[in-house]
Amino acid sequence: MPIKIPDDLPAARALEAEGVVVMRETDAVRQDIRPLRIGLLNLMPNKISTETQVARLLGSSPLQVELTLVRMTDHVARNTPAEHMDAFYRPWSDVREERFDGFIVTGAPVERLPFEAVRYWAELCRVFDWTRSNVHSCLTICWAAQAAVYHFYGIPKRTLPHKAFGVFRHRNHAPASPYLRGFSDEFCVPVSRWTEVRREDIPDGSGLSILADSPETGLCLLSDPDRRSLHMFNHLEYDTATLADEYIRDAGAAVPAHYFPDDDPSKPPRNSWRSHAHLLFGNWISEIYRTTPFDPARIGEAESLTPSRPPS
């Protein structure tokens, strides 16, 4: 089944050109089906690029997905045209009474600030708390993953001596996890961050379990069953050229490790993580489909964690 996104969203044209099946709103209303409702709280500066990356991975599922783009209520995006934000994004204050089968919170370029110094921190904390009652499963990415485990568990983020930047091999510690179904014992993941969450800072009895990490860059993926969440500290959603774009943007920065052939920036990078990105998002969507309540009004209830009649 296709992904349902707004008719005029730029991502629609890009995905159709790649062969991803996109269902326009005008066609979706004619089908008698309950799609999985997925919200995307997009905190990245290049919102159009991030929309496309996430929609691509959600659209590879055989299930019908309806994507809702969400922004912080009072925060004004500086790198995305206001017309785009007004046309396609809804402030969180407008969706807070709604329920979602899944909700994604992206990273943000604020990781070297204390959490409390981020101008929308108070509202983001309310969003995290809201996911407990209005979202069946939450996926946090990079800075948002660090922010979530700090908010819920008090786990600090630690500043790195230099930026973790490149594509690094990661170890699969939980091949039986539904989220890592089909994953190799080792797999590559793009990393781009100045801070980290450390294994030794995870509180005993938190229920958090490490699904994947890297000897070079540390924790990558945490399962958080008590919060019905999956926390990914890196960027499996990245396009092939995203790290190259960051390297060019940050002129004079270190060359991203293990990314360009022979570490030569004059050579085009090769994507070594695409298949596992599709696996992770596909597994997340499949697990939502398997366990989400048939009645959206029951989303957030404790008993909704057990398998129920799937949407149809």
Score class of each variant (00 low, 15 high):
residue 283 N to T: 02
residue 114 P to E: 10
residue 18 E to C: 07
residue 6 P to Q: 14
residue 164 A to Y: 10
residue 157 K to D: 06
residue 48 I to N: 09
residue 79 N to K: 13
residue 80 T to W: 06
residue 199 R to P: 07
residue 130 W to K: 12
residue 13 R to E: 13
residue 83 E to D: 15
residue 17 A to D: 08
residue 80 T to N: 10
residue 219 L to N: 01
residue 65 V to F: 00
residue 197 V to T: 15
residue 185 D to R: 15
residue 101 D to P: 01
residue 136 H to F: 09
residue 65 V to N: 00
residue 210 I to P: 00
residue 308 S to Y: 03
residue 104 I to D: 03
residue 146 Q to A: 08
residue 217 T to S: 12
residue 103 F to S: 05
residue 85 M to Y: 06
residue 135 V to Y: 06
residue 27 D to T: 10
residue 106 T to F: 01
residue 100 F to I: 03
residue 62 P to S: 06
residue 127 V to R: 00
residue 155 I to F: 03
residue 65 V to R: 00
residue 220 C to H: 13
residue 49 S to K: 15
residue 57 L to Y: 05
residue 157 K to H: 04
residue 37 R to H: 11
residue 165 F to C: 04
residue 200 E to R: 15
residue 220 C to P: 03
residue 268 P to V: 07
residue 279 L to K: 14
residue 201 D to A: 03
residue 30 R to P: 02
residue 37 R to Y: 01
residue 93 S to T: 07
residue 272 S to M: 07
residue 99 R to C: 09
residue 221 L to W: 03
residue 273 W to T: 04
residue 134 N to E: 00
residue 188 C to A: 15
residue 191 V to K: 08
residue 65 V to M: 06
residue 269 P to D: 09
residue 222 L to E: 04
residue 42 N to G: 06
residue 186 E to L: 14
residue 50 T to R: 03
residue 212 A to K: 04
residue 230 L to M: 07
residue 310 P to C: 12
residue 114 P to Y: 09
residue 231 H to T: 02
residue 169 R to F: 07
residue 202 I to P: 04
residue 220 C to D: 07
residue 130 W to M: 14
residue 76 V to R: 15
residue 277 A to D: 01
residue 211 L to V: 06
residue 205 G to P: 03
residue 167 V to H: 04
residue 48 I to D: 06
residue 307 P to Y: 08
residue 301 E to Y: 13
residue 153 Y to P: 01
residue 25 E to F: 01
